[in-house]
């Protein structure tokens, strides 16, 4: 009973927190008050301007942010990829450095200087779209880098497509919209907002429904299966052969 109550409380808190977070994010884009923008400007000057330039114009160390929109900022900062931990083949994820309020303040500031993709509306992130369409679109557009089950995959020169399990719907949407790192942009003419909603629906379906066949071995396909059969399958069988032929001492 205590467990059930705990889970219920946990769900209420996370769900409530999530609703709060996403509503503030959308509010930030639609009616960002001057104070929020000012707050964002300060944060930007302190944390981002050294690489991206005081007027978002970019420097030798970082690209221009003119026209990237609130969605880009929310994705890059909200997933902990920015501020950059170190130069490398691509920006690595690390613990998020700012509170949701601070992230939306910076997003509002960047969006206020030039138009760009906005943070998506919560109605596109509810995961209640068409999973079949989403799955097909995912296989055609995303699976070659992210793997059919969203387990991630290798790209050239040490770059990689990250696993998609555990990524918030809003970040998946923003990634498709803005094409972070090596990812191509899937604009609204390419994948309509409805299509993006379907893809998110499919990914959330995979997350909520673990494989009916048992533990997925990382959803990595035949390599993981082969490794498993050699080490654990044959390992167990060889152990049995040794046991069966052992002589009593």
């Amino acid at each position: 009973m205590a467990t059930v109550a705990l889970i219920a409380i946990g769900l209420i808190f996370t769900g409530g927190g999530y609703a709060l977070f996403s509503s503030t994010a959308t509010a930030g884009t639609s009616a960002s008050s001057q104070t929020t923008i000012d707050e964002g400007k300060k944060l930007f000057a302190a944390n981002c301007a050294s690489c991206h330039g005081a007027a978002l114009q970019g420097t030798a160390a970082g690209p221009s942010l003119i026209g990237v929109g609130a969605a880009s900022v929310d994705f890059q900062v909200g997933t902990g990829r920015m501020p950059l931990a170190m130069s490398g083949p691509q920006a690595m994820q690390k613990p998020v450095q700012f509170s949701p309020d601070q992230v939306s303040a910076m997003a509002a500031y960047v969006a206020s200087l030039s138009p760009g993709p906005a943070i998506p509306d919560a109605s596109l992130l509810d995961g209640k779209g068409d999973a079949t369409n989403g799955a097909e679109l995912f296989r055609i557009n995303c699976a070659m880098c992210h793997n059919v089950a969203g387990a991630g995959g290798a790209l050239t020169e040490g770059k990689f497509a990250p696993p998609l399990t555990g990524v918030a719907s809003v970040h998946i949407y923003e990634a498709m919209l803005t094409g972070p790192q090596n990812m191509p942009v899937f604009n609204n003419a390419n994948l309509t907002p409805e299509d993006k909603r379907d893809i998110i629906t499919y990914l959330k379906y995979l997350e909520a429904n673990p494989s009916p066949g048992g533990y997925e071995l990382g959803s990595l396909g035949p390599v993981a299966e082969g490794l498993f059969v050699w080490i654990f399958g044959l390992g167990a069988i060889v152990a049995v052969t040794i046991w069966l032929t052992a002589k009593s001492n």
Binding site: A135, E136, R139, I140, A143, M144, C145, H146, N147, V148, A149, A151, G152, G153, A154, A161, L206, S211, P212, G213, G214, Y215, E216, L217, S219, L220, G221, P222, V223, E225, G226, L227, F228, V229, W230
Partner: peptide
């Protein structure tokens, strides 16, 4: 077989010549 998934064809979906998934390998 009871505890570990092998070849989840439902993830791979029906064959279509255009997509190729990352991590496409033959059996060992």
């Amino acid at each position: 077989a009871s505890f570990f998934t092998i070849n989840p064809i439902w993830n791979y979906g029906p064959y279509d010549p255009s997509p190729v998934s990352a991590g496409t390998q033959p059996d060992w």
